[in-house]
């Protein structure tokens, strides 16, 4: 399992330093060399405008993985705050917050994201907003569940009696216990965000074409399926390998978290 974690880290690093390894400018149009097969000049071939696919993949990692990181992190923050407000705010606040969470959950996340991003007008900011606003509910449920179970613990009651503010209790007593479980949820949501970004971009509601995002690249490649099928393989493979690595790393993390809580 350690090797999978390394792979996940490697993919993550690739998003940061990947563009420096790109042999060509990802936007450089080279019409005479359009749709060329993989060769020593273009390792993965070129697309319909003669742009080097390998360079586009490497630059695209920044969008596909970087945006997924940003989105899952924003959702993590929203979800944790909402989830902790529930046990801290008392019964009525808890009920209201959980019903709001349920209302957001009453809709398949990706369908909601498509509607929101589409109505806001396609673009990167709509994409970030749409996927963050539809992705925080799982964190909130986990945070609330753990918060409720901590409520009756001796040290939390003592902190309350000592006159600590709810904010301080959340910071010093709830947050540390939340970290392991929320990290596990986060890996899952990170992987989902990668798929979400590429799906929305593929549908035309996300990152817009000249930008080398993986889903947008697939949208470009789809028209040339008959002549250059390989062009369609690479971006999809990049999505699958990243998602798989992150999911497996998440599984390993979940197992070790479960083991540690058993030892306690």
């Amino acid at each position: 399992m350690r090797s999978v974690t390394y792979l996940a880290v490697a993919i993550f690093l690739l998003a940061i330093v990947g563009p420096f390894f790109a042999p060509y400018d990802p936007a450089a149009i080279n019409i005479p060399k359009r749709l060329s097969p993989p060769s020593s000049e273009f390792f993965l071939g070129t697309d319909a405008l003669g742009r080097d696919i390998l360079s586009r993949l490497l630059h695209g990692a920044r969008y596909s993985l970087g945006l997924a990181f940003l989105i899952s992190f924003i959702a993590l923050v929203i979800g944790t705050v909402v989830g902790l407000l529930a046990p801290l705010g008392g019964k009525i606040a808890d009920w209201l917050i959980m019903r709001t969470t349920d209302s957001f959950l009453a809709f398949p996340e990706l369908v909601a994201a498509v509607v929101i991003a589409g109505l806001m007008g396609a673009g990167m900011w709509s994409l970030i907003f749409a996927l963050s606003v539809t992705g925080w509910m799982r964190y909130a449920r986990v945070a609330r569940g753990i918060g409720l179970s901590l409520q009756s613990r001796g040290y939390v009651i003592q902190a309350k009696l000592a006159g600590l503010s709810p904010l301080a209790i959340a910071r010093w007593h709830y947050l540390p216990s939340l970290v392991p479980s929320l990290t596990v949820v986060w890996t899952g949501m990170f992987a989902r965000a990668i798929i979400g970004i590429s799906t929305l971009s593929f549908l035309g509601f996300g990152v817009q074409p000249p930008t080398p995002e993986w889903g947008a690249m697939l949208l470009d490649a789809r028209i040339h399926m008959r002549s250059t099928p390989l062009q369609m393989i690479w971006p999809g493979l990049a999505v699958v390998v990243s998602v798989l690595a992150i999911n497996l790393a998440g599984d390993a993390l979940r197992d070790s978290v479960a083991e540690r809580s058993e030892h306690q």
Binding site: A191, I195, S198, T199, G215, G236
Partner: peptide, 8 residues
């Protein structure tokens, strides 16, 4: 299978 996006 869970890692493959439906559209791909």
């Amino acid at each position: 299978g869970t890692a493959i996006p439906a559209f791909w």
